[in-house]
Amino acid sequence: MIDHEAVAKRYRDQAEEFRAKSELMRDETARNQYEKIAESFESLADNEEKLAFKKEGHPLVRKTQEPFPTGDGCP
């Protein structure tokens, strides 16, 4: 079984590493690319956390908010 929380943490750690590397880049294009990679890892982490929240019986499941929007604006 996949540990979505552990995967999310790993993705956030990777995002942090790419952000740190982006700060070292003198070239603006390279810096922006590293930032985009970091944002992608953050997005992946967000998705993994949603999967963890979706698990039945997960202690952090939100009772008042749907983890995935329905898209129609209705709760």
Rank of each mutant, 00 (worst) to 15 (best):
K50Y: 03
L24D: 08
F41T: 02
T70S: 10
K50F: 02
Q65H: 10
E49D: 12
M1Q: 14
A45V: 06
E49M: 15
H58P: 04
P75Y: 11
K63H: 10
F41M: 13
F68L: 09
E49G: 00
A20Y: 10
D72Q: 01
R19E: 15
E17V: 03
R19H: 11
S40M: 08
D3Q: 11
P75W: 12
E5D: 10
S43N: 13
M1V: 03
A8D: 01
M25F: 06
A6C: 04
Q14D: 12
E28V: 04
E39K: 14
A20S: 09
K36F: 01
D3S: 13
S22N: 07
A15Q: 03
K55Q: 13
V61W: 08
R10A: 15
Q14C: 12
K50E: 06
E23L: 14
E48M: 09
R12H: 06
P69I: 00
L24R: 14
A38K: 01
V61I: 09
R19S: 11
V7H: 02
R12S: 09
C74L: 12
E66L: 14
G73S: 03
I2H: 11
L60V: 07
A45E: 09
A15T: 03
E23H: 08
L24W: 05
R31Q: 10
R31A: 09
K63G: 03
Y34P: 03
P69L: 02
N32W: 05
E23T: 07
E56C: 00
A45C: 06
S22V: 00
H4F: 15
E66G: 01
